[in-house]
Amino acid sequence: MEKITRYTIIFIVLMLLQMLIFNNIPAIGMISPYIYLVFILLLPVNMSKTLVLLLGFFSGLLIDVSVNSLGVHASATVMMAAVRPTVLNILAPRIGYESNNIPLLATFGTAWALKYITSCVAVHHITLYICFTFTFSDLGFMFLRMLINICLTVFVIMLSEIFVFKR
């Protein structure tokens, strides 16, 4: 119960942060860090995969409503939520996860967290940019912007995990 309230608070705070601050950074073009992904990334390892999917969908949809791009973030976040269990499996430590593990930087170390966050965020961003542009023309420029945005998002999420989410 304590966990649920905690996640709810995290969710609300992240959403507000994303909607009110990060979406309004006057960045170049479509570049802006997507901090709200932290919520999906921080869900417990043994959480039901379908529940993660649903949570991803609704959080993405909420962001979509705020930036008026209905479906784009939802699709990207659902994609990320779908690959999250696979990524976790690949990155699993030799002894396996404990039942109530939370994929935190503080628990598994910086290198592990960087791999985990980068792969999840990459999947999210690739889907996101495909949905945004919806075309395969001008792939080079799109790819460049995507890479920059991935770096930015990963950087912000790493910072948040280092300084905010320690437990």
Binding site: L61, G71, S75
Partner: peptide, 25 residues
């Protein structure tokens, strides 16, 4: 196959949203 089915459903719903509510797309 609840996971795969849910994933597909959510992606299809997202796709429908994208195509119906975003002008350029």
């Amino acid at each position: 196959h609840s996971f795969i089915l849910l994933f597909l459903i959510l992606q299809i719903v997202s796709f429908i949203f994208i195509v119906n509510f975003n002008e350029p797309q």
